[in-house]
């Protein structure tokens, strides 16, 4: 009670002392429902355990996100990939003897499997390719049969005005060279020029910001011990390897 008890205050206090209004009937049910929501088990739940669990959930989500984004960013481009890979099989095809096949196929296809011509075209710059190549006749003589069946192929029947200089007949030196001279020098579509080939060859194999490094970084933010539970690595072909350190977990138990 305050020392300076005002008579006015005292009158009001005395009047209000016995004021007991009626309470709504359903109020206790609301209080019971409110008490049921605040269960003691919920309050007693260890905070640290929940925190670790949440951290691992976030780490898993981050790993998944980084993986998907990295795969999407470094997905192979079909055109460039095919150009780089098809050059070798073509060379293998050239090494096989093409005698009977060359005789029965059209002139364009026959020219594309000639090993001597392919090598020459790759070594020369593009501006030189438009000129006739006299040195290419020797390998042709070795590979192709000497029968004049090639002379009647559809390529020979093309009108001269529509034929570009690079497809015109090459000057012949041998006896059977006149039969092959009318075969057009078609450029293989899969052969790269020197600059593109060098760029492909010198492309970096390992990326310091690669997928495996990013995944290891994410795991390292959660698992700060020296021996990580999960370790990611990638090989030279770009495959990702996942290693689980089970021995570490066993020794921990």
């Amino acid at each position: 009670m305050n020392p300076d008890d005002n008579p006015f205050d005292r009158h009001i206090r005395d009047k209000m002392k016995n004021f007991t209004p009626d309470v709504s009937a359903g109020l206790w049910d609301k209080i019971e429902a409110g008490l049921a929501r605040k269960t003691p088990d919920e309050a007693a739940m260890p905070v640290r355990r929940r925190t670790v669990s949440v951290a691992w959930r976030w780490a898993a989500a981050a790993v998944l996100l980084v993986g998907v984004l990295s795969y999407w960013a470094s997905r192979p481009v079909p055109v460039i990939y095919l150009q780089g890979k098809t050059a070798a099989p073509m060379a293998e095809t050239h090494a096989q003897p093409a005698g009977p096949v060359a005789a029965s196929r059209p002139a364009g296809e026959t020219a594309s499997v000639m090993p001597g011509r392919t090598r020459t075209a790759r070594a020369l710059p593009r501006k030189v390719r438009s000129e006739p190549i006299p040195a290419a006749t020797a390998p042709i003589q070795e590979v192709l049969p000497s029968e004049p069946a090639v002379k009647q192929t559809p390529a020979v029947q093309l009108p001269p005005a529509a034929t570009p200089p690079s497809l015109r007949a090459t000057p012949e030196t041998g006896s059977s060279g006149s039969d092959i001279a009318e075969v057009p020098d078609l450029q293989p579509p899969v052969v790269l020029d020197d600059t593109a080939a060098e760029m492909l060859a010198s492309a970096p194999r390992s990326n310091p910001f690669g997928v495996s490094q990013l995944l290891n970084f994410v795991v390292g933010t959660v698992d700060r011990r020296e021996e990580k539970a999960v370790l990611f690595s990638s090989d030279s072909e770009g495959s990702i390897k996942i290693e689980f350190n089970l021995a570490r977990n066993r020794s921990r138990k």
Partner: peptide, 14 residues
Amino acid sequence: QEMLYRKLASGMLG
């Protein structure tokens, strides 16, 4: 808890 509520609810509402 319910008995305590029944006993004091009215005065506390005031």
